[in-house]
Design a protein around this nucleic acid. Structure first.
Lengths: 148, 148
DNA sequence: TATGTGAGTGAAAGAAATTTTAATTTATAT
DNA sequence: ATATAAATTAAAATTTCTTTCACTCACATA
């Protein structure tokens, strides 16, 4: 999986640097979480204080372009990143559900909307290539607090 | 409709200031558009150069809290605002379709997802209060360019 | 295995977007 | 009319992200 990454970099004519490996490994150790660039920086800094914030920004941008990492922007406007989990080399479609109280972001899978694209496409004349769904609500923990 | 706004402000214990009226009227004259704070500022400045950018920011935040204006954040991370169009006092649910080429944002109505909330709710344990759907693609104009 | 070259990096400066501060003005209740 | 609390202005500060530039390192080639 680390070797795969090296291959991906090479096949794009990019250099295999320690910084890139460290950032990807960090995100890999935090699968399912949605981290801000600053948070990624703080985690990386513990083991590699020599890696600068600018490199974190450049690297996550690169990882996004390589489709290894996904950028997530919620209504709060805060930019977060999450590791793309691939199955058989293909990333599966997933969406986000956000707790309005604790801010926790969970992912869930969904194929229900694929056929909706056609309908919207006909209606609007757009050629649709992607879609994004976010649900906002209260998670199990916060739901209880919320009632009181 | 202007009077309505004054009433809303008063009923929330807020003062009816010229700046607030100007900002709301400006957004009202640009229904269906999705403007950045800076764009709103530029439009307002033409008629009212004395109104500062900070006031624009504060006012649109206020208008959001009053549910008169909706904040829209796309994957580009740029924050835009649009006037909420109400029918019989109730805002109807709508979503966005974004052209990846020209950046144009269109709104469209949708009630197809209402029942989806229940399904997702059961699946995740979240109490869902809202959802947001964005489609990304190429609009009619750009579609043609895109093929070539 | 040594070496040249350009891609990548780090630190700092720079931008861009938004918020805060503090002095002043204004809406509105009395 | 006047007091006063809220709102505004302009500037400074903050936050978030990007660019610059000198330096370093990965790696293709010899």
């Amino acid at each position: 999986m680390n070797e795969d990454f090296k291959e991906i970099l090479k096949s794009h004519g990019l250099k295999v640097t320690n910084q890139r490996i460290v950032v990807l490994e960090t995100l890999s150790r935090h699968k399912g979480e949605h981290l801000t660039p600053e948070e990624i920086y703080e985690i990386v800094k513990k083991e590699h204080p020599e890696i600068g914030l600018a490199t974190i920004y450049r690297t996550i941008q690169l990882l996004c372009q390589l489709d290894l990492v996904e950028k997530v922007v919620l209504v709060d406007g805060i930019v977060r990143y999450e590791m793309v989990e691939k199955q058989k080399g293909k990333a599966h479609h997933h969406h986000h559900i956000v707790c309005l109280d604790c801010g926790n972001v969970e992912s869930f899978e969904d194929d229900l909307l694929e056929n909706l694209e056609d309908a919207i496409s006909k209606k609007t004349g757009f050629e649709i290539v992607n879609h994004e769904v976010k649900f906002y609500g209260y998670c199990n923990k916060c739901k209880k607090k919320h009632i009181n």
